[in-house]
Nucleic acid binder design. Structure first.
Lengths: 73, 73
DNA sequence: GTCAAACCCGTAGTTTAGCTCCGTGGTCAT
DNA sequence: ATGACCACGGAGCTAAACTACGGGTTTGAC
């Protein structure tokens, strides 16, 4: 449930940056397959990995957990 | 680095709730030792585990990654 | 000053999942 | 019909998430 939403959030942020899965993988330094797994919610990145995703997507880590219509405080 | 700050954040939230490590462990359903490891930044909870921590501490997951003086948007 | 609550910390162990590589096959546009 | 992008399966390695046990330190109350 959580990792599913996290994946969707990451996919959305990636597209907003105009990046392909492969490009994102290269920036982060991980495999393309892993990006796919994460975005589909099959796997979640480790906490250490979250930092890499946040950096690559140019957001704070907490923004990765800021979903849909929820207004950030 | 990240897990260190995460641990401090969790410890702070726990104390704000007036909970002991043991009490928190019982609510979450994990061992007391693990709480200790997490708060000291030795280990980080898995993404699935984060939900448990957030629930027990009565915050959103993203609030676990909202640190120090950083102003939330 | 002693007793206990709360916590730190080491060691050692099991199991999960984070993460990889390789390959296939589907879709869509060009 | 070729290439870019992605979903998906199988198969695997390894680090780390998580546990139990045991001892040791600080703190505060009495």
């Amino acid at each position: 449930m959580l990792q599913k939403k996290l994946g969707q959030r990451i996919a959305a942020l990636r597209k907003k940056q105009g990046l392909t899965q492969e490009a994102l993988a290269e920036v982060i330094g991980c495999s393309v397959e892993f990006i796919s797994l994460v975005e589909r919610g099959v796997n979640a990145p480790s906490v250490a990995g979250l930092q890499g995703f946040a950096d690559a997507l140019k957001v704070e880590v907490r923004d990765l957990f800021t979903f849909d219509g929820r207004k950030p405080r």
